[in-house]
Design a protein around this nucleic acid. Structure first.
Lengths: 240, 240
DNA sequence: CCCTGTGAAGAAATTCACAGCT
DNA sequence: AGCTGTGAATTTCTTCACAGGG
């Protein structure tokens, strides 16, 4: 197995499609599980099953990273873990801060998911004086007013936003001004950030509403099936 | 303004693309904000700005629901709110349960986002006897073992999963067996559900890893710009 | 013979550009 | 004149199918 020498990060190469990037963490988690269970090699089929996708998609996605598999054999689990981690930038650790230490902010601070892969919570920020000084998950809450100093001091690049929707944009503007370049937004608000700043959102109520849409369809289809409309010939799926 | 009479839900009509469905809640939130501020009409451009997308996308998405706008004028805010709500199934209320009342489960229970649009928390479930009986957000935690009875009694169709990854699949299987038809998964695990059951996931650590990917690209591009890049040919070590 | 890697085909989503109605 | 609604063009994503190397 010999692989071409590659630079640290292939910035110049053909970019990895966004949809593929979003699946890499899923593969990574599956691979880590497999490694823990002692697997040394894995096929695209096995990885696909573990990741909830289909084999061609796994192969295509992995092919964007390079030719890391062995034809006729599969992928080396450890080696793939290493390559995906590197591509995702997980070989370094990232300093993050959580902004807004209410219910959700506290739950996030206590959540183990951060440390899991090199995301260090360097600061908790809140603008409520009553909260400043309290210690959550071993970290003292700092005043949001000190954001510029704190971001610089800890070289924080990623902020997790758990503030009320009404102030989310203002807080974001201030974070960006302080040097934050990635924002993960939990507030139910549409944010705008300048070019060069990454933004992703997690929105409980949107997810519920999407589920509601399909839930309603099921109910409607059910009543159709029960008589209002013509019969629908359902082909039997032998795999179920 | 007259609109064609339509059936309750257009199950038979051309289906709305998934990507469009996922944006409807965003439009809805923006429209509700506008209504609160007293707007009566809105153009696709204004709605696009508020929703963080572009005008043609708004028009295309809304066109799947019907011809609810007025050429040369725009869309009636209240009327659009009504139509989108109906299409999303938000005119009825949905009974939900939260499963796993740890840090995150508690935060979700206390979060206002549920009631916001007709998602009633009908039950909190946990398998830890020490938690059963405790009251969170005015709701008594019930034993997960009673899930079948509780789901039936409250006609719960949507479950929010906040259990440890290790048990997520087993818990899901049991929920589905109890009659749950939609699952919103917060556990960092790939779940599989039978056809006819909807599944969406919210995964903090995946989102952070995606941000990390783009963050790393920025750093790399920065160093390319400064001329420091293209060094370090990594000798590849399969065993790390 | 097995499983990866990948061009090519196909499907889905987005954007364009303009006809059509008010 | 202004803004929607939508076919057509374009881009992005997925799947296919098979060549290619172990």
């Amino acid at each position: 197995m010999h692989h071409p020498a590659r630079t640290l990060v292939n910035v110049t190469a053909r970019p990895i499609p966004e949809a593929s990037v979003a699946r890499l963490p899923v593969y990574l988690r599956a691979l880590v599980d497999m490694a823990e269970r002692g697997s040394e090699m894995v096929s695209s089929e096995a990885l696909a099953t573990a990741a909830g996708v289909n084999p061609p998609k796994v192969r295509k996605d992995l092919s964007y990273l390079g030719s890391y598999g062995v034809r006729g054999v599969g992928y080396d689990v450890q080696y793939l873990i290493h390559q995906i981690s590197r591509e995702l930038g997980l070989t370094q650790d990232w300093a993050t801060c959580i902004v807004g230490i209410g219910n959700l902010g506290q739950a996030l601070a206590n959540y183990g998911g951060f440390a899991e892969r090199g995301f260090r919570i360097a600061a908790l920020l809140d603008s409520d004086d009553a909260k400043v000084g309290q210690v959550i998950a071993g970290i003292e809450i700092a005043a949001f007013d000190d954001v510029e100093r704190i971001v610089k001091e800890h070289e924080i690049s990623i902020a997790v936003l758990a503030v009320p929707a009404a102030v989310a944009q203002d807080v974001t503007d201030r974070l960006v001004a302080a040097g934050i370049t990635s924002v993960l937004n939990f507030a139910p608000a549409v944010l705008s950030v300048p070019d060069g700043v990454s933004l992703r959102k997690v929105d409980l109520s949107i997810e519920l509403q999407i589920l509601s849409f399909y839930e309603q369809r099921k109910v409607a289809e059910e009543s159709v099936r029960r008589g209002t409309a013509r019969r629908r010939l359902e082909s039997v799926d032998p795999t179920r």
